[in-house]
């Protein structure tokens, strides 16, 4: 009886030392989870999640302050990826925003008055122009976040859906008929 007690105590002490050592030895600096979550997010920086950009949203998710289903540009797949990453249940889209087709902002250069408000709104510096000068969008850098739309005083910015052509066309998941058909 006594000896068993001693063995258990010795074991717990030993394991405690091992665990304590491991905690020091393998200490992880920083919070890699935020980086991982941020890598899944689409980096549109649109703020539709309610956070000022993707990184803050990633931080909020990592802290458990925010849900994983608030990112419309990430789409359904993004939620699945986050669910996988965090080991939580998939949730359908929350909030009002719904995923939209990808688009690129376009400035109607005839209407633009060169107020620079959109330039200040663009999270990725994809608008060039100067005060009293016509502005234009660098289409290849535009994330389609739509943050430039509200500040424009003359409503000269529109969102152009990215049209499908040969260069961006992709194969569809094959549709297998007999599985759906009921004979």
């Amino acid at each position: 009886m006594i000896s068993a007690l001693w063995v258990m105590i010795a074991l717990s002490v030993l394991l405690g030392i091992v665990l304590g050592y491991a905690a020091i030895r393998f200490k992880i600096e920083g919070n890699p989870l935020v980086e991982k979550i941020d890598a899944v997010l689409p980096q549109t920086q649109c703020g539709q999640c309610g956070y000022p950009g993707c990184k803050p949203y990633a931080e909020a998710i990592a802290k458990g302050e925010s849900d994983i289903n608030l990112c419309p540009p990430g789409g359904d797949e993004g939620i699945h990826k986050l669910a996988d990453l965090l080991g939580v249940e998939y949730k359908p889209f929350g909030g009002d925003a719904q995923p939209k087709a990808k688009a690129v902002a376009f400035i109607d250069e005839n209407t633009c008055i060169g107020c620079t408000l959109c330039i200040q709104a663009c999270p990725v510096d994809a608008i060039v122009g100067a005060a009293k000068q016509m502005h234009t969008i660098i289409a290849s850098e535009c994330t389609g976040c739509e943050l430039c739309l509200p500040p424009c005083p003359v409503d000269c910015i529109s969102m152009d859906k990215i049209a499908e052509d040969i260069s961006n066309w992709k194969w569809q998941h094959p549709v297998i008929i007999p599985i759906q058909a009921v004979a």
């Binding site: 997010l41 980096q43 920086q45 999270p123 990725v124 510096d125 994809a126 994330t143």
Partner: peptide, 15 residues
Amino acid sequence: AADKARERHEYRQFR
């Protein structure tokens, strides 16, 4: 594209 956007965004914030 996302990496580029992230980089640009971070640079913008830095700027």
